[in-house]
C-alpha cells in the first residue's frame, strides 16, 4: 500500500536522524522497508546494563492501521518477553485494540526500552518470571544479569 510505505519512509528518516536514547535502527535489507533491525543498549539502571540486544521490528503491510510487532532476537530474562525462540515482547500500545495509527515507531522503541528498566509483572507473558520479579527481586536481577552476560555481550 503506497500510503503505508510513505509513512514508513518518513518514520525511518526520523528515527535515523534523531534516534531515541540507546537505540540504533537499520533495515534488515535495503529492499524491504517492513523489517527493521533494532540494536538496543541495556539501560544503565537495570540488570540488562552492558548488554546489547538485537530486536526485529516487523511492520504489517497495512501499517499504520495495524500495529507493528517487536521480537527479541537476543535471549533476555524478562517477564514481558516470551522465553522461546520468538522472544515476543508484549507492549500494551501494540495490542490491536489499543493501537493508534497516530503512534510513532520511535515512541514504540522508547516504550520498549523503558520496559527493560521497569518490567510490568501484572501484564506478563512469563508468569513465573513475573512471580519471581515480585517476590524475590534479588534472584530475578541475578538471573537477568547472568543472561545479559551470557547472551547479550558480543
Amino acid at each position: 500500500m503506497a500510503g503505508g510505505q510513505k509513512r514508513i519512509g518518513k518514520e525511518l528518516a526520523e528515527v535515523t536522524k534523531d534516534p531515541p536514547e540507546g537505540i540504533t535502527v537499520s533495515l534488515v535489507s535495503e529492499a524491504d522497508i517492513y523489517n527493521w533491525d533494532i540494536q538496543l543498549e541495556g539501560p544503565e539502571d537495570s540488570p540488562y546494563a552492558g548488554g546489547t540486544f538485537k530486536l526485529l521490528l516487523a511492520l504489517p503491510t497495512d501499517y499504520p492501521f495495524k500495529p507493528p510487532t517487536l521480537n527479541f532476537k537476543t535471549k533476555v530474562y524478562h517477564p514481558n518477553v516470551s522465553n522461546d525462540d520468538k522472544g515476543s515482547m508484549c507492549l500494551g500500545m501494540l495490542r490491536s485494540e489499543e493501537w493508534k495509527p497516530s503512534s510513532k515507531i520511535s515512541g514504540v522503541l522508547r516504550t520498549a526500552r523503558n520496559l527493560l528498566i521497569e518490567p510490568n509483572p501484572d501484564d506478563a507473558v512469563e508468569t513465573q518470571i513475573a512471580e519471581q520479579y515480585k517476590s524475590s527481586r534479588k534472584d530475578f536481577d541475578k538471573i537477568a544479569r547472568d543472561w545479559t552476560k551470557k547472551y547479550a555481550k558480543a
Binding site: 490491536s96 485494540e97 489499543e98 493501537w99 493508534k100 497516530s102
Partner: peptide
C-alpha cells in the same frame, strides 16, 4: 480520547 477515540479498532 487516548483510549476510546484514537485507537483504530475501538
Amino acid at each position: 480520547c487516548a483510549s476510546q477515540i484514537e485507537p483504530y479498532q475501538v
